[in-house]
């Protein structure tokens, strides 16, 4: 896929998700272009993380279609599905590192599963990914021995292990100190710029959104869907929508 490729990396059409008949959101449609840092934002409980899980096929869609890298995950057969899963990476909200493996082994796992690289190559590659997120000297530690921020960074390192063209990050900045969080934002921007990786970031950290977001959609619990879409800085300055204004100005609704 080249930069001029007109096909969007993600195309979502009228997505709807409902749990036990309770609609979380409906009629959610958007496109994400290659190399973009696309932010899904909104208040707590509006379905941000659910939307992310729906996109990667972990939550069933009540209606609508979603294409990732030109492939509809829900319709794909096992082989296509496996090939597609190799080309996306997900960083989970709490890291979701495997507790019985060291950080290096966590990062090595997808490499071992999907490539034929020999062991020293896998080890060096895992080390380089950990070095990239600033965990070079913690490679031999277990997830139980590191802090929450380190677990998040290790989660990013693992998500990036196979250089996927599409990375999903669930709340990368939540619970981190401002310096670490800013470092993470810079890392995301650098990777997007250097490698053309597309990022879909779920967050409600205002500073992060403004620092990295090329484009965003804002979900709302009451509206059960998208209430604003566009450049976050323009939304902050120009939006007339009361919820959007409250969100960007940190006012109590």
């Amino acid at each position: 896929m080249s930069a001029s490729d007109p096909q969007p990396v993600i195309r979502a059409e009228n997505l709807a998700v409902a749990f036990d008949g309770r609609t979380i959101f409906k009629d959610v449609s958007f496109e994400v272009q290659r190399g973009e840092i696309f932010v899904i934002l909104g208040g707590s409980g509006c379905g941000k993380s659910t939307l992310l899980k729906a996109l990667i096929g972990l939550v069933p869609l009540a209606a609508g279609h979603a294409w990732l890298l030109g492939e509809e995950l829900a319709e794909a057969n096992d082989r296509d599905r496996r090939a597609l899963l190799q080309r996306i990476g997900v960083m989970w909200q709490s890291g979701a590192l495997f507790g019985s493996m060291t950080l290096a082994e966590n990062v090595e796992l997808p490499i071992e599963e999907h490539t034929r690289l020999p062991r020293p190559a896998r080890e060096a590659l895992a080390r380089s990914k950990l070095g990239l997120v600033g965990l070079g000297d913690a490679a031999a530690r277990l997830p139980a021995e590191i802090s929450g921020g380190m677990a998040k960074r290790a989660g990013i390192a693992r998500a990036m292990a196979l250089d996927p063209p599409l990375l999903f990050l669930d709340e990368p900045g939540a619970g981190l100190d401002p310096i670490t969080s800013a470092g993470l934002d810079k890392l995301i921007k650098d990777i997007a710029r250097d490698t053309g990786t597309t990022f879909v970031v779920v967050t409600h950290e205002l500073q992060s959104i403004l620092a990295i977001g090329d484009r965003c959609i804002m979900l709302d619990k009451d509206a059960q869907g998208i209430i604003a879409e566009g450049d976050p800085r323009r939304l902050r300055d120009e939006s007339e929508q009361p919820t959007v204004r409250a969100f960007f100005r940190r006012e109590a609704a």
Binding site: A104, E123, A124, R127, S128, K129, L130, G131, L132, G134, L135, G136, D137, A139, A140, D190, D194, T195
Partner: peptide, 20 residues
């Protein structure tokens, strides 16, 4: 340029992660 960027980034990352 892109190749050099990837190489540089990986070189820095590896330097930050000495072998155990």
């Amino acid at each position: 340029d892109e190749v050099a960027a990837v190489l540089d980034r990986t070189r820095r990352a590896l330097a930050a992660a000495p072998p155990p």
